[in-house]
Amino acid sequence: MSTFEELIAANERVEPRDDMPDAYRATLVRQIAQHAHSEIIGMQPEGNWLTRAPSLRRKAILLAKVQDEAGHGLYLYAAAETLGVSREELLDALHAGRQKYSSIFNYPTLSWADIGAIGWLVDGAAIVNQVPLCRCSYGPYARAMVRVCKEESFHQRQGFELLHTLSHGTEAQHAMAQDAVDRWWWPSLMMFGPPDDASTHSAQSMEWGIKRFSNDTLRQRFVDMTVPQAEALGLTLPDPDLRWDEEAETWRHGEIDFTELFEVVKGNGPCNAQRLGHRVQAHEDGAWVREAAAAYARKQAEKGRAVA
């Protein structure tokens, strides 16, 4: 029987009933919960436009995408539960603000073009972050991420297509697309977290095989991938310092204002209170459904016993 250290050294997966250090378990619970909460909260900015989608086709697509986000949240809650934490504890921690979700969802979706920008940039960044997690050392998390990544590609492509349509539409539509990209570009870069020298959890997570690449490495990968896509869209990225580094064959971006990220993380973003308030309200409004279902199950079980 291999010890935890042997499994990690051999790049093998750790499974739920294996012995693992408390700190490894705690780190995974924190990360998977935050990831799950992000998917659940992430339904709100896009849900905002469901009733105002410009066509039935766009509406059906957006509905499917928002449903996927709910599904991703559930895959991830299920993965977290294998670590011995209950769904109830996780939801309580989210509602009480003890566990976080991605700061990107604390920005408002002001126009229809924001739906495109979220798909293209936010989901694009999420894919870059998530693909390495498919090889994470904790089996249930890695397996959940395989499912998530399979579905995420549709999200990014529909966003790109939406923005492409707007960008090549009327002048006003093009301006709307550009405005959305102007607002979402920097927050998307911040999704990769603080720079490597300021990242508190990175080193230990890399050692444990939870994290495979550093924040800055993944951020650079995203920038290199995205710049040519922006060109194809006919849209500009709002960074005057963005330039091609011939020697390193990579795009150099301007300095990121991380004070903004830290403010949003602290709860001072434009929509923090609204997002959490809406989540708590939805949970409370759904209480009667859960109670009715439990009562029905109880009755059925009693009937079953009476017959027997």
């Binding site: 599904g71 559930l74 895959y75 299920a78 579905e151 859960r290 279902a293 029905y296 199950a297």
Partner: peptide
């Protein structure tokens, strides 16, 4: 493929369909 919460078997099947077989 994973797990799901439900109060009875019929609901578990429906939830599992929605979460794990959307495609």
């Amino acid at each position: 493929v994973g797990s799901i919460h439900a109060s009875d078997a019929a609901m578990a099947l429906r939830n599992a369909r929605d979460v794990y077989t959307r495609r």
